[in-house]
Amino acid sequence: MNCIKTMLTPSSVLHPLNKNMAFVQQKPLLFSLIIFCFIAAASSRGPIYAPPNVPRLTDSFGHVPIDQGYSEFFGHPNIQLTNNGSNANLTLDKVSGSGLASRSKYKYGFFSAAIKLPSGLTSGVVVAFYLSNADVFPHNHDEIDVELLGHEKGRDWVLQTNIYGNGSVHTGREEKLYLWFDPTQQFHLYSILWNNHHIAFFVDNVPVREFIHSNASSSIYPSKPMSAYATIWDASEWATHGGKYPVNYKYAPFVASFGEMEMEGCIWNTTGSASPCSRRSLSSSDPVDGETFAKLSQEQINGLQWSRRKLMFYSYCKDTARYKVIPPECKDSS
């Protein structure tokens, strides 16, 4: 309310006999000021909501240095390893974006990255942490995406999650939500849990989406080994309503910082060994397809309900323009 007190005219307090009339006359102004102050507060992109307490799933697994777990994917000049190879800065400029790819492929696992996003006007910039096997199955690949979409003309960063199996981007299952913090000020954790039971997405260990493996979803459920990727790229045409707000390279370079990488699960062996899987470490007493990870705990369910109620603003399950008939797995998510 300090914003309103500062901007109100002194006349409302200098004429006590006309107090009621002055208040009535200033009601439209007061309403406008409230809206102005609300927008000003939102534009500061500080914390909006306090998330509920949830288990720290990321504490169950060890960190993998980027120079040990990842190789360069593209944009060599725009990749800078830091902290003795544990972290990396990925840059987008007029010449190129950049990206990393995991050295191993995984059949199920837990994948996490601490990411700090570029600040300033970042419309059209997309930072992604995802799983894919498009290199092996270009026409019917699987993918699990965490995509951070640069804001449009001052709007907040948007988190988009997407899932598809045996298909392409046209068969995706997108959902979008706003973050409850400014992702450009410090590192935040973005995580994916993928096993035979479900796929769960987490932000700072708070579940933001769960996609259950069921008869209804089995045909589109990712099932083939995938690599993990970290990228930054120009997605002007895709992420900003057909290029309405393209990347403005006057504000380049755009730098996304990655660290605290975690990859734990079934590392896919292609050597013909008896077991197709090996584990990177024994940091967890329970593999990611075991009972502990088969379903969300009650605390995690509470966190999931909180994030979807407060922050989600798009789900393909509600997109009747795109899907004339609601996809069958949407009944699971409800």
Rank of each mutant, 00 (worst) to 15 (best):
N2F: 08
I4Y: 01
K5P: 00
L14H: 12
K19T: 13
N20R: 13
Q25A: 12
L30Q: 10
L30V: 14
S32P: 00
S32K: 09
A41V: 07
A42Q: 14
R45C: 10
Y49A: 11
P51Q: 11
P52K: 06
V54I: 11
V54Q: 04
T58V: 12
T58C: 08
V64M: 12
P65V: 07
S71L: 12
S71T: 12
F74T: 07
G75K: 04
N78Q: 14
N84F: 11
A88I: 10
L100R: 02
L100H: 09
K105C: 02
G109D: 09
G109V: 02
K116V: 02
K116H: 08
S119I: 00
G120N: 09
T122W: 01
S123D: 15
V125S: 04
V126L: 11
V126A: 12
S132M: 07
V136T: 13
N140W: 02
E143M: 08
G167A: 09
G167V: 09
S168M: 06
V169D: 07
T171R: 08
T171V: 11
R173V: 04
E175T: 13
W180L: 01
D182N: 15
P183V: 08
T184K: 04
Q186C: 03
Q186F: 03
S191V: 07
H198P: 00
N205G: 03
N205Q: 02
V206W: 00
P207Y: 06
R209H: 09
E210W: 00
F211R: 01
I212F: 02
I212D: 02
S218C: 07
Y221I: 07
A228F: 01
A228R: 09
W233Q: 07
A235N: 13
E237Q: 13
A239G: 04
H241F: 08
P246A: 10
Y251G: 03
P253V: 07
A256W: 05
A256N: 01
M261Q: 12
E262M: 14
T271E: 14
G272L: 10
A274E: 13
S275C: 08
L282D: 15
S284D: 11
S285E: 12
I301K: 13
L304S: 06
S307F: 05
K310W: 03
T320M: 10
P327N: 09
P328F: 09
P328E: 15
